[in-house]
Design a protein around this nucleic acid. Structure first.
Length: 289
DNA sequence: ACCGCTGTTCTCCG
DNA sequence: TCGGAGAACAGCGG
């Protein structure tokens, strides 16, 4: 379930697995779409110790001591797994063989993921990476940063949050979760947000990312994707079940081709002017964006 | 058995 | 230039 938190988890896992080890060989699954834009000669030449891994949004930039590296994207079903020598991994598309014989697999059932090996100095300049917007974790998010990132957007709020060139890292799940936490309807316009709502949105984004990172297990993937695990989310995937806060049934609808989940009561389409807010702001003046 | 759904990004239209 | 639709792929549940 690769959105920002899952990719960050992958980054940390890879750092740990490569630590103190040498990459001695790589293997590419012949014909795999994973390498559709990749110079396989460079991929096969990856070697040495891990210099470091950066993450921007959902992209990983991995560099090795022989001055080569790769840009990785997990797509919808990509994940890195470390396995013992000789162990079979279904849907393994790329393999990184370590000097102790252990193998790091890039497993990707649906082949939406990609690996693009390039000279290390070119990693940041790859078009896909260069276009990315602000990263809520790495760059730090503030009201000013978020407003700037979203400024000029005519998209509905959730769609704008998923625009990787504005904010990099939120996908369908965490965009919906952030909006629920901020009590904002997914179809609100960017321009309609009041200052308190901007603040709530920043906090909502940070909270949903922090939550996802927090529940990660010590295994090889984040705990909540384990089979049989109960849905840990507030609204995502919970259509027809009671809102965890108010018991109203969670609803879903299609927005820009994706299913959006929200609570009609906690996230009213019209801006709420509730008692608390009125008390704090007796002169109920309208905010304009 | 078939249909529709699924976390992503990209390309092609109007 | 922008937004939406469809494609790329494989599996799963109803």
């Amino acid at each position: 379930m690769p959105e920002l938190p899952e990719v960050e988890f992958a980054r940390r896992s890879l750092e740990r697995w490569f630590e103190g080890r040498q990459l001695v060989r790589t293997e590419a699954e012949p014909g795999a779409r994973t390498f559709r834009d990749c110079d396989l000669g460079i991929f096969k030449a990856l070697k040495g110790s891990l210099v470091g891994i950066d993450r921007k949004g959902k992209y990983l930039m991995v560099r090795f001591s022989n001055k080569l590296g790769f840009v990785g994207h997990l797509g919808m079903t990509g994940k890195f797994l470390k396995r013992a020598p000789g162990e079979e991994v279904k849907w393994s598309r790329a393999r990184f063989v370590l000097d102790d014989g252990e193998v790091i697999h890039f497993q990707d059932m649906r082949l939406f993921g990609r690996i693009d090996a390039v000279p290390a100095v070119e990693l940041e300049g790859r078009p896909a990476v260069a276009k990315l917007g602000v990263d809520p974790l790495g760059d730090g998010l503030s009201v000013e940063r978020l407003q700037e990132a979203l400024s000029g957007s005519n998209q509905e709020l959730k769609v704008a949050l998923m625009d990787q060139e504005r904010i990099a890292g939120l996908g369908n799940i965490h965009a919906a979760e952030a909006l629920f936490r901020a009590k904002l309807h997914p179809e609100r316009s960017v321009a309609s947000l009041s200052p308190p709502e901007w603040k709530a949105l920043v906090k909502g984004i940070q909270a949903t990312i922090a939550f996802a990172l927090d529940v990660e297990g010590d295994g090889e993937e984040i705990a909540y994707v384990e089979e049989g695990a109960p849905n840990p989310f507030l609204v995502y995937g919970r259509a027809g079940t009671p809102c965890r806060k108010c018991k109203t049934l969670v609803k879903s609808f299609t927005q820009a081709g994706r299913t959006t989940h929200f609570c009609p009561t906690c996230q009213p389409k019209q801006r709420r002017v509730d008692g608390d807010q009125m008390r704090k702001r007796p002169r109920a003046r309208r905010y304009r964006g």
